[in-house]
């Protein structure tokens, strides 16, 4: 079942065309990947799906991006305000792990605070559950109130994933989630994505075809800013 349907999207920033006539369908409860060389517009596509492009200014966008929210179709590009409602359902994780300069606990409590969840017991339970889902709880349980900036690169990335999934999103977008990690941490994130793909739609950007083969069920090949070709992997 498709959760996001991208139809003929063209995107230009500062009068430079970055994506031209892109189309693709993201299935629900599967891991999908976007593969392509640098500058082919992979990150831009994630910015469009998460509506973060609205914060850039000086852009021009055409086409349709339909998000199927429990059977209701929403054209994301037609939305004029209240983008935050969508961003709580389509979570985006940046290439470089970007925990806020506060404690691990507060980093995870922050999205809950934004959503109005402030009851201490409920916050604590959801934080523990999210940390367990990303296999980080055992590593940080004794130092939840220490700064998140003191974590290792791999731990920071898992914290950012935990911070996103604590909102119970329907779609998880990740921009090269393992680009700055060592081999062990890379494998951890990869198996985590496979696990999360059973519960929600996961779409990640990568230029490592071997990684895509080991994690995703299919990928979209982004070439020359124009073609978005779906390729199925034989697993």
């Amino acid at each position: 079942m498709t959760i996001i349907d991208v139809k003929s999207v063209t995107f230009a920033y500062d009068r430079t065309t970055i994506l031209k006539n892109i189309s693709c369908s993201i299935p629900d409860k599967e891991v999908s990947a976007i593969y392509g060389s640098s500058g082919s517009g992979k990150t831009t596509l994630l910015m469009i799906l998460s509506l973060l492009f609205r914060e850039l200014g000086n852009y021009k966008v055409e086409g349709e991006v339909n998000f199927y929210d429990n059977g209701r179709s929403i054209n994301l590009l037609a939305l004029k305000n209240d983008y935050w409602r969508i961003r709580r359902k389509i979570a985006y994780i940046a290439q470089e792990p970007d925990p806020l300069s506060m404690s691990i606990y507060k980093n995870l409590a922050f999205p809950l605070k934004l959503m109005g969840v402030t009851e201490k017991k409920s916050v604590q339970e959801r934080i523990e559950a999210a940390l367990c889902r990303v296999h980080l709880f055992e590593e940080v349980k004794g130092r939840l109130h220490d700064s998140a900036l003191e974590l290792s690169g791999g731990q920071k990335q898992r914290l950012c994933i935990a911070r996103a999934i604590i909102m119970n999103p329907m779609v998880l977008l990740l921009d090269e989630p393992t680009s700055s990690l060592d081999k062990d941490n890379k494998q951890r994130i990869e198996s985590l994505l496979t696990e999360l793909g059973r519960e929600m739609a996961v779409l990640f950007v990568s230029h490592d075809l071997n990684q895509i083969k080991s994690v995703a069920s299919h990928f979209f090949h982004c070439t020359d800013k124009k073609v978005m070709k779906k390729e199925t992997l034989d697993l």
Binding site: E96, F110, L114
Partner: peptide, 21 residues
Amino acid sequence: LKERLSALSLGAQKYQNIFYI
């Protein structure tokens, strides 16, 4: 920009992003 987008990507409303970040 990275800092500016960090809370927005977590579903922060504009005033929340201004106040918290």
